[in-house]
Amino acid sequence: MTEFGFKLSQSNRIDLDETDNSVFKKVAIIVPDIKLCFNCGSCSASCTSTHFKRVSFRSAILLLNRGHNKEAISMLKSCMLCGKCILVCPRGIDTRNIIINILKAEEEMK
């Protein structure tokens, strides 16, 4: 077959009709704090890893809520669980507990 060099791009759109945010919901039962984030960005701003890798707690839980689980998990893989983000979160969210539970839930769902 002749290759013409065309390919289909994958949609970047968030389609909340097709979305599967079961990981988010599962974690929300264990750590309800996950619902409290208002995306201020303090967590990512204080994160040491974010200087080197694309780590962002607030982005990760937002993407998880929108059902983009793979991308969300990839953003947490480089987290060193230092806990600085807990100190700066104005809503007092137990970020480390959430991260651990997201990774656990993801493991269980595999």
């Binding site: 970047n12 968030i14 389609d15 909340l16 995306n39 982005s59 929108r66």
Partner: peptide, 10 residues
Amino acid sequence: DTLTSRPLKI
């Protein structure tokens, strides 16, 4: 969805 910088449909 400006916080993820993605178009969104619902």
